[in-house]
Nucleic acid binder design. Sequence first.
DNA 1: TTCAATACTTACCTTGAGGTAAGTATTGAA
DNA 2: TTCAATACTTACCTCAAGGTAAGTATTGAA
Lengths: 119, 119
Amino acid sequence: MTSSERRGPYICGIDAAMDVVSGKWKSLILWELDNYGTRRFGELKRGLPGVSEKMLIQHLREMEQDGLVHREVYREVPPKVEYSLTEHGRSLNEALGPLGEWGQRRAERLAAEAPTVSP
Amino acid sequence: MTSSERRGPYICGIDAAMDVVSGKWKSLILWELDNYGTRRFGELKRGLPGVSEKMLIQHLREMEQDGLVHREVYREVPPKVEYSLTEHGRSLNEALGPLGEWGQRRAERLAAEAPTVSP
DNA sequence: TTCAATACTTACCTTGAGGTAAGTATTGAA
DNA sequence: TTCAATACTTACCTCAAGGTAAGTATTGAA
């Protein structure tokens, strides 16, 4: 497995949480799954413009391993796999709430301060 | 400047917050400054075992630029520089609270599940 | 037998975050 | 004049995260 050794000894709670949420697309995957409840691989891919299949599957696998995401395979043709959040995934998303609000306020502040880029 | 182009257009609040907090030592710097109120460069360095001077100063500069950290220079010999959190830095730290608690719970859960590594 | 549709998988490459270690700047004291 | 003490600064290197693009697996329908 490429995405190996994690769950290291953590120096604080933030550290432990970051270990699980750091990764370019993870917080967005979390949001998509929380928002839609259940999403297929292809739906997630379309919902995250710019993500590569490699990174999407890699992040999903890590999140599954970390107990955040549930993976349900339907033995059909064509193949169908549904992803959803576990209880841990949902609680993580909740814990990210205040951070998201802070970021929202920051973005608004930046937009207000923004010097108009006039050529 | 090496640590350039940030403040990109964000796709959500988490994204905006992560832009500011991602960096190996940033959440720890945040914690140290929140905990002590004011810290000198050398004190921070000693408080973050393993950090390199290059990364410490780079992170501090970025956080100053992002309005999280205040830098106060005392024209003395030997030189003395004190770092502290701004209001934004303090509110970010608050917003990180729930995430830290989540991580704490996760760490406890992992410790409970941990298979004893017996040689 | 070939194709369609979906979900991966693999090999290879690029980029940037972060580390290492040595050097610079400042100036009062000895 | 040299040194001590602190806060950087710079050049160079390593490694892993992430991107690209092509290939594989599955199986019912035509």
